[in-house]
Simulated assay, not measured.
Amino acid sequence: MANPNQKILVWPAGESNITIKSFCSPDDIALLSLKETFVESNNYNPILSKKESLVSASLQQDVNVTIAYTGEKKIIGISILQYPSPEERWVKIENRVMMEVSVVEVAAEWRSRGISKKLFELLFDHPLRERRIIYMVGYSWTWDVSGAGISVIEYRNMLINLFSNFGFRIFPTNDPNVLLCPENLFMARIGADISDNVKMKFKLLRFNMDN
């Protein structure tokens, strides 16, 4: 049975259509192919390249695995919204308030067609979005700068623009991984129903001042 929150968007793209589906289940994923979608090249190492990882994510509570695929059932884009792993500082805020955009990938030959934005339209159409702080961490060493043909700063600005369209803004943090490179990025969207108390906890936690 499909998730009641699942949405499907069919988007014309040349000679065929692209389907974008949110809250994908293991059964949905089983029908699709991820073979040779995200290929390692130069300094680019895809975050996700196995269907097993998608299935594992889709089984987690409240997770939204949103996938774009062709008429031939080939996956060309993935985005995942899930709770942070237990070792992350963000789990210290109670009641699973924090959710992370842990993956956003579009196959090289399908980039610059607005697919990331379409993925996000369904990814953030989440019933808990106003009761969650949704964040992303951008590490510049994971970006396919050479494939995009732009500089690191241009790639960073592209991400800022993409996420800003969905209510995200840049927040400072002393996270050591973020501080490793000046181009790295931490952005978040604070839901409308987040209390002032939780907002303060989030502010302190960004600098490990929660104790």
Rank of each mutant, 00 (worst) to 15 (best):
I150W: 03
G191F: 06
E72K: 14
R131A: 08
K74G: 02
S112H: 13
E109F: 02
M200L: 15
P84N: 07
K74F: 02
S22P: 04
N157A: 04
G14R: 02
F171V: 08
S53L: 11
S140R: 03
N95S: 14
A188W: 01
I153Y: 12
T37D: 07
I20M: 05
G191P: 08
D196W: 04
S49W: 01
W143F: 14
S53Y: 11
I134N: 02
L179R: 14
I78K: 11
I133H: 01
N161V: 00
I20W: 02
L128F: 13
E154A: 15
V137R: 13
A2Q: 11
L119I: 05
S22E: 09
S58E: 10
S102R: 05
P86D: 03
F207V: 11
D210R: 03
N165H: 15
A68Y: 08
M99P: 00
L122Y: 03
S58L: 06
N211R: 14
N64A: 05
P84F: 00
M136Q: 07
L204R: 13
G114Q: 07
I47Q: 14
V104I: 15
N161Q: 14
S56Q: 09
P84E: 00
P176D: 04
T173F: 00
R89Y: 08
K118W: 06
L31H: 13
P26T: 06
L81S: 09
K7H: 02
M136G: 13
I93V: 14
E130G: 06
R189F: 04
L128K: 11
I170G: 01
S22T: 01
A108Q: 15
A192T: 05
V39K: 14
L159V: 04
P86C: 05
M158R: 15
I67T: 10
D196N: 15
I150L: 10
K199C: 06
I78W: 11
F166W: 07
Y155Q: 06
P176W: 06
V39H: 02
W90M: 12
I134V: 15
V65I: 08
R189S: 12
M200Y: 12
F168C: 01
M98R: 00
P12T: 11
G14W: 11
I18K: 01
